[in-house]
Design a protein around this nucleic acid. Structure first.
Lengths: 147, 147
DNA sequence: TTGTTAATGCTATTGAGTTGCAAATATAGA
DNA sequence: TCTATATTTGCAACTCAATAGCATTAACAA
C-alpha cells in the first residue's frame, strides 16, 4: 500500500489520500479531513461536531477520527483536560522529522492545541528494563488570541 | 506559611506536612498521602479507591487529590488515556530542579505513569504572541514489568 | 449491475470529573 | 475541656467523552 504524501509540495486529493490508506471515500470522511487540513490546530470530536453540524452522527465522527489516527491520516494529542484532539500533518512535518519529538502547544485559557515544529531532545535516562517508543513534548501557556 | 520539605533528608510527618499547607489533618488525607508516598508511581483516583477500599467516598478522594495538587503536596499528570494521576515529589525532585521539565514515563501496556528525573530542554520556538508557562515531557513505551 | 465488505446511525453503557447541600468533624479560642 | 465555626465529608445527581452491539445503508470490486 502506498503511503500518501501530505505536505504542500505534493498535492494529493483527499479522495486519493483516503484510498491510499485503504479507507473508503465517504462524504463524512472527506469533510472531516478537509476541516482538519484547514483548521490550523488540533480539533476535538466536539469541535468537529460544532464546525460541521448535521454532517454525521457522533459515533460516526468518533469512528472517522479513530480511523484517521489508525491509518496515519491524523495524529491524536490530548488537550489540557485529557480530551483527544486530532491534527493532520502539515508541510512542516515531513520525512525524517517524524522520528523527532512532535511538540504541541496547549493554551490553558481556551484549551486549543497547536502543532509546533519538531524538535530534537537530549537523551533522557529511563529506569532499567523500560523500553522507550515515543516522546511527546507539551508546552503550555496562552495562545496569541488569549494573551 | 512555611513550605514543607518532602525529600528523604528532611523528614516531616504527614500531619505536619498537611498542616504546613493549611490543610486540616484527616484520616483520609493521611492515608492517601502515605499511599502516594510509597507507591513509586503516579496514581489515579481509581487506583486510590482500589488500594484503599472503604476509606472514603469517591467524591472525597477526588477532593483530597484536588486539594493535594492545589496546595503543592502532589502534582497531576495525565496517563495515556488522559486520566489524571497524582504523584508526590520525591528526593530526586528538589530545589532548583523544579524549574526544569519534570519528565514522566507512560507505559502503553499497563497504563502506569512514573516520574523521571528532571531534564533540561533545548529552547523551542513558539508562534508569535504565544506565551509559554510550563513544559511537560512524556516518554512512552513499556515499563519493566510489561517489557 | 450486483455481491461483499465496510461504514453509518441508533441505542445504550461506562467511567472520569464535577456540583450542591446537609451532616459530620477538626481546630481555634474561651 | 468545652464550644463555636469553618472545613471536610457523604450522598445524590449530573455532564461529557469514550465506546460497544447491532441492524441498515452505502462504497466499490468484479
Amino acid at each position: 500500500m502506498q503511503v500518501g504524501c501530505m505536505n504542500y509540495f505534493c498535492p494529493m486529493s483527499n479522495e486519493q489520500l483516503l484510498r491510499s490508506r485503504g479507507l473508503r471515500v465517504t462524504n463524512t470522511r472527506k469533510a472531516v479531513l478537509q476541516l482538519l487540513q484547514h483548521s490550523g490546530k488540533a480539533l476535538s470530536q466536539a469541535d468537529v461536531e460544532r464546525s460541521l453540524p448535521e454532517l454525521a452522527d457522533r459515533v460516526t465522527l468518533f469512528r472517522v477520527l479513530q480511523a484517521f489516527e489508525e491509518n496515519g491520516l491524523a495524529h491524536r494529542v490530548q488537550d489540557a483536560h485529557g480530551v483527544s484532539r486530532f491534527a493532520v500533518c502539515t508541510g512542516t512535518c515531513t520525512g525524517g522529522h517524524h522520528h523527532d519529538v512532535h511538540a504541541h502547544f496547549r493554551c490553558l485559557e481556551c484549551g486549543d492545541v497547536y502543532c509546533l515544529d519538531p524538535v530534537s531532545l537530549p537523551k533522557v535516562s529511563i529506569p532499567k528494563g523500560f523500553k522507550l517508543k515515543a516522546s511527546q513534548l507539551h508546552l503550555e501557556g496562552s495562545c496569541s488570541a488569549c494573551s
